[in-house]
């Protein structure tokens, strides 16, 4: 039952993080964004067991795909296929990393959050380059990819502490079941 609650709380946090990150001001000088969504996603797939984590990844793909949806001449620029593949892929990688490091830790969450952020932004850029043509890489583009990724490393421990206090069920689950899941306090 605890796992159901954990899943539900994380499933609510996911859209909330999308709404909140839209309200955060962009950073100078190139208008870089702070992204909470990939950091919350990384927490979710590390805290949940495999099957619920895959369901969580599908939800993340649906939300992210819809938020970025732009329809041009009746065609969506980035549909849901790429987000589904991306988030399911990262779920499997993070689950394997969690198994290999014997459970979830704030360090793993920080590194995972930063890597998900980096690959997500860079992947979107590459997809747009392929779809629209051109490959306009300059300092501002690199900063737009690098700054949110570095910021994710700094944001992740704060979110980890915050989410652990909001989601103590994950820790209880790990202790009760002896499973390598749930955040370590």
């Amino acid at each position: 039952m605890n796992r159901v609650f954990l899943f539900l709380i994380l499933a609510l946090l996911l859209p909330l993080s999308l709404a909140v990150q839209d309200l955060l001001p962009s950073l100078p000088p190139f208008g870089e964004r702070l992204l909470l969504f990939p950091v919350v996603f990384a927490f979710g797939v590390l805290a949940l067991p495999l099957v619920p984590a895959l369901g969580f990844a599908l939800l993340a793909a649906l939300l992210q795909g819809l938020m970025l949806l732009q329809v041009q001449a009746g065609q969506s620029e980035i549909g849901l296929t790429l987000p589904v593949v991306f988030f399911l892929g990262w779920t499997i990688v993070l689950q394997m990393a969690s198994e290999a490091t014997r459970g979830m830790s704030w360090e793993l969450h920080a590194v995972g959050g930063a890597l998900v952020t980096f690959t997500m932004i860079a992947g979107q850029f590459l997809t747009l380059c392929i779809k629209r043509g051109g490959f306009p890489v300059d300092l501002s583009i690199l900063m737009r990819i690098a700054v949110p990724s570095v910021a994710a490393i700094l944001l992740a421990p704060l979110l980890y502490l915050l989410l652990c206090s909001f989601v103590p069920l994950a820790a209880d689950e790990a202790q009760a079941g002896g499973m390598p899941k749930g955040p370590a306090h």
Binding site: L58, L66, L69, V71, G74, Q75, S76, G79, L80, V84
Partner: peptide
């Protein structure tokens, strides 16, 4: 569910958005 999501067209996606 994943296959269903991937096969959604632009129109229904815009409604979902």
């Amino acid at each position: 569910a994943a296959i269903a999501l991937c096969s959604l067209e632009a129109g229904p996606l815009l409604h979902l958005k």
